[in-house]
């Protein structure tokens, strides 16, 4: 090819129309010199992920083989101080579908020292939360985020890979994808059969928290937890008295959005009952 004459106009600057990849986000995310808290706009990702597909997930074959050390910073220091084999602090709280992480960032204020994990299926959203936690840890008073971690995971499939039986004391299901079509009911975060898995990872008296702005979804979740023999609904007073509920109402990203739009929020919580007597 001949070289163009000097008169040829400079290459037109590609104007990014909506949805087109420009690379600025990945460049931002990869920049090692970036300082401070990450900006959410660089981690946008579409709202849905198919819970049935394989994705390319990383998960341990069983909870005992999970290496939590890269997700939490708090105990590694303690362990160095005390030479004896202290048992590693265990995750006690899971925010399933944590999104941009508003809840787990706020919860340490009311639950200091409780090790908590956000689980999110979307890669870039998870990456944002991870960056955010790491940045917060460096700020003044950031030690409390040493017990806050996030992981990319499909909790609907792999909860038992991460947690042992009765390990968790609190499970949050905040503003889940409603999956409106009846045909898609099994993709919902609450289903009669999946509720048994939440019961498995929850300790007796542990609590599952739900909040949504979609009334139908609220009824769906309520119906299936109400009907599940291992869950009993918290009363209105119990819900109001729970320190986590206020945080869940106001500090989740979706909660704030619903607030701005003047929408309604439906909250319901259940306590994990003890396993019943055997029947033959």
């Amino acid at each position: 090819m001949s070289t163009p004459t000097s008169a040829s106009p400079p290459a037109k600057r590609q104007k990014a129309s909506s949805g087109q990849r420009t690379g600025h986000r990945s460049a931002y995310r990869a920049d090692p010199t970036r300082q401070g808290l990450p900006q959410k706009k660089h981690y946008r990702q579409r709202a849905h992920a198919n819970p049935f597909s394989d994705h390319q997930l990383v998960y341990p074959p069983c909870p005992q083989e999970m290496d939590w050390s890269k997700h939490f910073t708090s105990t590694s220091i303690e362990e160095e101080e005390e030479e004896e084999e202290e048992e590693e602090k265990r995750v006690e709280l899971a925010d399933i579908g944590c999104g941009f992480g508003g809840l787990i960032i706020s919860l340490p204020k009311v639950l200091p020292g409780v090790r908590m994990l956000g689980m999110e299926i979307r890669t870039q959203v998870t990456e944002y939360v991870d960056e955010r936690i790491r940045a917060l840890r460096k700020l003044e008073g950031g030690e409390m985020y040493g017990d806050v971690g996030v992981i990319r995971a499909n909790a609907m499939k792999f909860l038992p890979n991460f947690f042992e039986k009765a390990q968790l004391r609190r499970v949050f299901l905040c503003f889940p994808d409603p999956h409106f079509k009846a045909r898609k009911h099994k993709a919902r975060i609450v289903s009669p059969t999946l509720a048994s898995e939440y019961a498995y990872v929850l300790a007796p008296a542990g609590i599952v928290y739900t909040i949504t702005d979609v009334e139908d979804l609220h009824h769906w979740m309520a119906k299936h937890f109400d009907e599940h023999p291992l869950f009993e609904r918290l009363t209105g007073e119990e819900v109001d008295a729970d320190v986590c509920v206020a945080v869940m109402r106001t500090d989740t990203e979706e909660g704030k959005k619903v607030e701005r739009n003047g929408g309604k929020k439906f909250v319901a919580c259940w306590r994990r009952a003890a396993d019943p007597e055997w029947v033959e």
Partner: peptide
């Protein structure tokens, strides 16, 4: 997805455990 699950019967909503590995 590599799971072996053990549930009670007929109280099949009680998951007794998993054989994972």
């Amino acid at each position: 997805d590599e799971h072996i699950r053990v549930s009670r019967y007929p109280q099949s909503w009680v998951i007794e455990g998993f054989c994972l590995g």
